[in-house]
């Protein structure tokens, strides 16, 4: 099996590798793993609470080239999107963009899971930090 040029590009020049402070209220962290291959993927987003736009994204993935490329691409795609728009990203779009072979589809599933998990974490924090405001509005 050979990797596509796009996978190799992301693998050699991964975008947005790094981490953010997971305690920051505007940061959402998604940590997911694929038992098929033992990959583990951490994806973090920083959301502007006024606009709900994802202003920054970082990832760190331990796994094969396809997993690294999928998460690298995912960070590129979520940046500049609103949280709701980011939730619309489908793993099949990642498969298409990176020309992943069938045996590597689970890498794209993992990337989608990571986006969702990060957004889920951020939403949970938002609800936790704003109970007073929500109660006041009711």
């Amino acid at each position: 099996m050979s990797y596509s040029d796009k996978v190799i590009d992301h693998y050699n020049n991964p975008r947005n590798v790094g981490s953010m402070d997971k305690k920051d209220a505007d940061v959402g962290t998604g940590l997911v793993g694929a038992p098929e291959c033992g990959d583990v993927m951490k994806l973090q987003i920083k959301v502007n609470p006024q606009t709900n736009i994802i202003e920054d994204a970082k990832f760190k993935t331990f796994g094969c080239g396809s997993a690294i490329a999928s998460s690298s691409l995912a960070t590129e795609w979520v940046k500049g999107k609103t949280v709701d728009q980011a939730l619309e990203i489908k793993n099949t779009e990642i498969v298409k963009e990176l020309a992943l072979p069938p045996v590597k589809i689970h890498c794209s599933v993992l990337a989608e899971d990571a986006i969702r998990a990060a957004i889920g974490d951020w939403k949970k924090k938002q609800e936790a930090t704003k109970p007073a405001a929500v109660q006041a509005a009711q």
Binding site: V32, G33, A34, P35, E36, L87, K90, N91, I105, H106, V109, E112, D113, R116, A117, G120
Partner: peptide, 19 residues
């Protein structure tokens, strides 16, 4: 795993991670 992701996408619920 794929089906669970699709379900999460459709319902907005968080997918239960295998690990």
């Amino acid at each position: 795993s794929k089906q669970a992701t699709e379900k999460a996408r459709a319902t907005g619920e968080l997918k239960k991670q295998v690990v």
